[in-house]
């Protein structure tokens, strides 16, 4: 464990608490893509199956349980409790265009041809693009509530912090995970546009609005 990874994971935790806070305080999931949230739940469930047969650490175990449980809880909130506040007509990204290629990529790139390793690879590729329905929705509506942008910023920071973590691990542990690194770089790159607007507008006290 190094500080980059620790702060990355804490940022990931923070993003989920911000999202829950957004939903509870506005009593609405307006502006949140159900598709992205469903993809994240899929990512966690397919990746963390090793919970049942592999012990890494108490930290690792607790985080995995938290990410699976919180992502399912968010789906429940969106699908049932705050269902009327979710507008599927703006959440129109076709997720099959993400799922299909991720299945193919997992079949092509994996460390071992076994069910858990294929699912692990699939989850890594899927996580890289899971934010796209959300970013697509943002692009379509052209604006976002400030708290939603904090959620996205925390999520993006988590991914960004994993990059120095990999560099650090390369030098200190001689450890490289090419699949995770490649997918992670792509994932972080997807946030660059968002980060630009976040830093130049939201953090200057303005509303998140995309140029028309």
């Amino acid at each position: 464990m190094n500080l980059f990874r620790l702060f990355g994971d804490l940022s990931h935790l923070a993003s989920i608490f911000i999202l829950l806070q957004k939903i509870q305080s506005t009593r609405s999931c307006r502006g949140i893509s159900f598709k992205t949230q469903a993809l994240y739940a899929t990512v966690f469930i397919t990746r963390y199956l090793d919970l049942f047969y592999e012990w890494v650490s108490l930290y690792n175990f607790t985080m995995k349980v938290f990410f699976i449980a919180s992502s399912c809880y968010i789906l429940y909130l969106m699908k049932y409790k705050y269902r009327p506040t979710h507008d599927p007509s703006i959440d129109t990204f076709r997720v099959e265009y993400l799922l299909g290629p991720c299945v193919v990529l997992a079949l092509l790139f994996h460390y071992k041809f076994s069910i858990p390793e294929l699912l692990w690879s699939f989850s890594i590729f899927l996580e890289a693009v899971a934010i796209l329905p959300q970013l697509f929705m943002l692009q379509r509506t052209g604006e976002a509530e400030t708290i939603t942008t904090h959620y996205l910023a925390a999520l993006g920071a988590y991914r960004a912090l994993y990059i120095p973590n990999w560099i650090y691990r390369y030098f200190t542990e001689d450890m490289v995970d090419p699949i995770a690194v490649t997918a992670g770089l792509v994932q972080t790159a997807l946030y660059l546009d968002f980060f630009y607007v976040y830093f130049t507008k939201v953090l200057q006290g303005q509303k998140f609005e995309l140029p028309a």
């Binding site: 990874r5 994971d9 990931h12 990746r47 090793d50 592999e54 890494v56 650490s57 690792n60 985080m63 995995k64 990410f67 460390y111 071992k112 390793e117 692990w120 994993y162 973590n165 450890m175 490289v176 995970d177 995770a180």
Partner: peptide, 10 residues
């Protein structure tokens, strides 16, 4: 290679 990196990251 056939070596599987340990999946110790989240």
């Amino acid at each position: 290679g056939s070596e599987v990196p340990k999946h110790d990251e989240l």
